[in-house]
Amino acid sequence: MKAIWNNQVIAESNDTIVVENNHYFPKESVKTEYLQETDIHTTCPWKGKASYYTLVVDGKENQDAAWYYPEPKEAAANITNYVAFWKGVKITE
Protein backbone atom coordinates (compact mmCIF):
# COMPACT_ATOMS: atom_id res chain seq x y z
CA MET A 1 0.00 0.00 0.00
CA LYS A 2 1.08 3.58 -0.65
CA ALA A 3 0.06 6.90 0.88
CA ILE A 4 0.48 9.66 -1.71
CA TRP A 5 0.05 13.42 -1.37
CA ASN A 6 1.21 16.27 -3.60
CA ASN A 7 2.66 13.71 -6.04
CA GLN A 8 4.98 12.24 -3.42
CA VAL A 9 4.88 8.82 -1.78
CA ILE A 10 4.64 9.58 1.95
CA ALA A 11 4.53 5.94 3.07
CA GLU A 12 4.77 2.53 1.46
CA SER A 13 4.30 -0.88 3.09
CA ASN A 14 2.94 -4.38 2.58
CA ASP A 15 2.15 -4.54 6.29
CA THR A 16 -0.59 -1.98 6.88
CA ILE A 17 -3.27 -2.60 9.47
CA VAL A 18 -6.83 -1.61 8.54
CA VAL A 19 -8.85 -0.13 11.40
CA GLU A 20 -12.21 1.56 10.74
CA ASN A 21 -11.44 1.68 6.98
CA ASN A 22 -8.10 3.47 7.55
CA HIS A 23 -4.77 1.94 6.57
CA TYR A 24 -2.24 2.33 9.36
CA PHE A 25 1.35 2.24 8.07
CA PRO A 26 4.28 1.05 10.18
CA LYS A 27 6.19 4.14 11.36
CA GLU A 28 9.40 2.88 9.74
CA SER A 29 7.65 2.86 6.33
CA VAL A 30 6.75 6.57 6.59
CA LYS A 31 9.11 9.17 5.14
CA THR A 32 9.52 11.30 8.24
CA GLU A 33 11.06 14.18 6.33
CA TYR A 34 7.49 15.01 5.22
CA LEU A 35 6.07 15.05 8.78
CA GLN A 36 5.84 17.96 11.20
CA GLU A 37 4.52 17.26 14.70
CA THR A 38 1.53 19.39 15.69
CA ASP A 39 -0.08 20.26 19.02
CA ILE A 40 -3.42 18.77 17.97
CA HIS A 41 -4.84 15.81 19.88
CA THR A 42 -8.15 13.97 19.71
CA THR A 43 -9.51 11.11 21.75
CA CYS A 44 -11.10 7.90 20.56
CA PRO A 45 -13.12 6.00 23.18
CA TRP A 46 -11.47 2.67 22.37
CA LYS A 47 -8.10 3.62 20.80
CA GLY A 48 -7.09 6.44 23.15
CA LYS A 49 -5.41 9.81 22.56
CA ALA A 50 -4.26 10.54 19.01
CA SER A 51 -1.47 12.91 18.00
CA TYR A 52 -1.16 14.53 14.57
CA TYR A 53 1.37 15.47 11.93
CA THR A 54 1.14 18.13 9.24
CA LEU A 55 2.46 16.96 5.87
CA VAL A 56 4.96 19.28 4.19
CA VAL A 57 5.83 18.38 0.60
CA ASP A 58 7.53 20.71 -1.88
CA GLY A 59 6.53 23.81 0.10
CA LYS A 60 2.87 22.82 0.46
CA GLU A 61 1.27 21.95 3.80
CA ASN A 62 -1.61 19.61 4.62
CA GLN A 63 -2.53 20.42 8.22
CA ASP A 64 -3.03 17.48 10.58
CA ALA A 65 -3.27 15.03 7.67
CA ALA A 66 -1.60 12.15 9.53
CA TRP A 67 -2.29 10.73 12.95
CA TYR A 68 -1.01 8.11 15.33
CA TYR A 69 -1.61 6.82 18.84
CA PRO A 70 1.57 7.19 20.94
CA GLU A 71 0.09 5.10 23.76
CA PRO A 72 -3.03 3.36 22.45
CA LYS A 73 -5.44 1.63 24.77
CA GLU A 74 -5.14 -2.14 25.07
CA ALA A 75 -7.88 -2.75 22.48
CA ALA A 76 -5.76 -0.91 19.88
CA ALA A 77 -2.30 -2.06 20.96
CA ASN A 78 -1.72 -3.51 17.47
CA ILE A 79 -1.44 0.03 16.00
CA THR A 80 1.37 1.14 18.31
CA ASN A 81 4.02 2.80 16.11
CA TYR A 82 1.64 3.00 13.12
CA VAL A 83 0.53 6.13 11.24
CA ALA A 84 -2.70 6.75 9.30
CA PHE A 85 -3.62 9.47 6.78
CA TRP A 86 -6.63 11.49 5.61
CA LYS A 87 -7.39 14.99 4.20
CA GLY A 88 -6.72 14.19 0.57
CA VAL A 89 -3.91 11.69 1.06
CA LYS A 90 -4.54 8.97 -1.51
CA ILE A 91 -4.17 5.40 -0.28
CA THR A 92 -3.53 3.00 -3.14
CA GLU A 93 -2.06 -0.42 -3.86
Rank of each mutant, 00 (worst) to 15 (best):
V30P: 10
D64G: 05
E28R: 09
A76C: 13
P45H: 11
A11Y: 10
D64E: 06
I4D: 05
T80M: 02
G59N: 05
S51R: 12
N78A: 01
S13F: 07
E37W: 04
N62H: 03
G59T: 11
E74P: 05
E28L: 10
Q63P: 05
V9W: 15
Y82I: 02
I4L: 08
L35S: 01
W86R: 05
P26V: 15
D15C: 09
I79G: 00
N22G: 01
G48K: 08
P26T: 15
H41Y: 12
Y68M: 03
T92F: 00
E20V: 02
F25C: 07
P26L: 11
D15K: 15
E61T: 10
K2V: 11
N78S: 04
D64M: 04
V83W: 03
I17S: 01
E12L: 13
I17H: 05
D58Y: 03
T32N: 05
Y53P: 04
W5H: 15
V57M: 09
K31L: 11
E74D: 12
A75R: 10
A66R: 01
E71C: 00
N7V: 06
E37H: 09
D58S: 01
Y34M: 08
P72R: 02
D58E: 06
G88D: 09
D15N: 15
V30A: 14
V83H: 03
P72W: 03
K2N: 13
P70F: 05
T92R: 02
Y68T: 11
T32Y: 06
L35V: 12
N62Y: 01
Q63C: 04
A66Y: 04
S29P: 10
Y52P: 11
H23Q: 14
H23M: 12
W67N: 03
E33L: 11
K31C: 05
A11S: 12
S29K: 13
N21A: 13
I17F: 08
S51M: 06
I79R: 00
I4H: 02
Y52K: 12
P72S: 03
Q36L: 14
W5M: 09
W5Y: 14
Y82R: 08
I10D: 04
Y69I: 00
E28K: 06
N6C: 10
Y82V: 04
A3R: 09
A66D: 06
F85D: 02
T92E: 14
I91M: 01
P26N: 12
N14Q: 14
N7E: 13
E28M: 06
D15W: 14
S13K: 12
E12S: 15
D58P: 00
T80P: 00
E61Q: 09
K60R: 09
I17P: 00
T16W: 02
E61P: 00
A50I: 01
N14I: 07
I91D: 00
V18K: 15
L35P: 01
G88C: 13
A66W: 10
S51F: 07
I17T: 10
K73A: 01
Y69H: 04
H41W: 08
I91N: 00
F25N: 12
K73N: 05
N62C: 11
G88E: 12
E61K: 06
T42Y: 11
K87V: 07
V30K: 05
T32S: 04
V30T: 07
W67T: 01
D64W: 01
Q63N: 04
Y52H: 08
H23A: 15
A3N: 04
N6D: 15
N62K: 06
G48Y: 14
K73S: 00
H23S: 15
V30Y: 08
